[in-house]
Computed example of a mutant assay.
Amino acid sequence: MTADRCPCGAGEPYEACCAPYHEGLKKPPTAEALMRSRYSAFALGHEDYLLDTWHPTTRPRSLDLDPDQRWTHLEVLSRTDGTLFQTTGTVEFRAHYRRRGERDVLHETSRFTRDNGTWSYLGPT
């Protein structure tokens, strides 16, 4: 997958975009970067990364990703805070997918928090 575009939609090759986060080589610097990397993790089936980046107070015990669900593209609609200098942020997005031939969309405004320099997903607003 070296030359393939990253599923997150940032326009970069996966290896230069979300792969370093998924491989634990880097931490997403902003709430939006974490949200994009989590979308890519859903698209690529990286359940461990999704659980690892979920805040412990809201994290489920396990995930059961649907193998029939194919994430097709991501639209980031807005963001509030979540920069390098903040500890909370939100990102509103639409995540488009296909399941058994039917198109659908997940529209969410996600909440994020940063503790000790690491962003975590809290859940929807």
Rank of each mutant, 00 (worst) to 15 (best):
E102I: 06
Q69R: 09
T53V: 04
A95M: 01
R59E: 10
Q86C: 05
R79G: 13
H96V: 04
P28H: 02
S78I: 03
G89I: 12
H73S: 12
V91W: 08
T90F: 07
L44E: 01
T109K: 00
Y14D: 04
P60T: 03
F85R: 11
E108Q: 03
V76H: 01
D64I: 08
L25W: 11
R38C: 08
C18G: 06
R99C: 09
S110K: 06
G89W: 14
G24N: 12
E108G: 04
D48S: 06
V105Q: 04
R100V: 01
N116F: 09
L74K: 04
T72F: 15
H22A: 07
S40H: 10
E102F: 02
H96P: 04
D68Q: 06
R79T: 14
P7N: 11
H22R: 00
R36N: 10
P29H: 11
L34E: 02
W54Y: 14
V91K: 02
E32D: 11
P7V: 10
P20E: 09
P7C: 04
A16H: 13
R98E: 14
A33G: 00
G82H: 11
L34F: 05
W71Q: 05
R61I: 07
V105C: 02
R79H: 13
R100A: 00
K27G: 14
P28D: 12
T83H: 13
R111M: 06
L74F: 14
A43K: 02
L84S: 15
A41Y: 13
D48M: 06
E47R: 10
W54Q: 04
P60F: 10
R38M: 11
Y97R: 00
E102P: 04
R111L: 09
D68M: 06
W54K: 03
T109M: 01
T53S: 05
Y14K: 06
K27V: 15
P20M: 00
L44H: 09
C17L: 13
T30S: 13
T30A: 15
E108F: 06
E75I: 08
G101T: 00
T90G: 02
D104N: 06
R36G: 07
L63Q: 14
H22T: 00
G11H: 13
A16I: 05
V91D: 08
P60C: 00
E15G: 01
W54A: 01
K27D: 14
P13G: 06
A41D: 12
Q86Y: 10
T57K: 15
G117S: 07
T87R: 13
E23T: 07
C18A: 04
T30L: 08
R70Y: 12
F93N: 01
G117E: 08
R111Q: 09
L77K: 12
A41M: 15
A95I: 01
D48C: 07
P29I: 02
E92D: 14
Y97W: 10
L50W: 10
H107E: 00
E23W: 11
P13S: 05
L77H: 09
H55S: 13
R111Y: 08
P56R: 05
A43D: 10
T58A: 08
D64T: 07
Y14V: 07
T87A: 13
A10F: 14
G89F: 12
D68N: 12
P28K: 00
S78P: 10
T80K: 00
R99T: 15
R99Y: 12
T80M: 00
A19H: 09
L63K: 11
F85K: 05
L34T: 06
Y97S: 02
R61E: 15
P56C: 01
F93E: 08
H96T: 01
D104R: 02
R70V: 08
R94W: 12
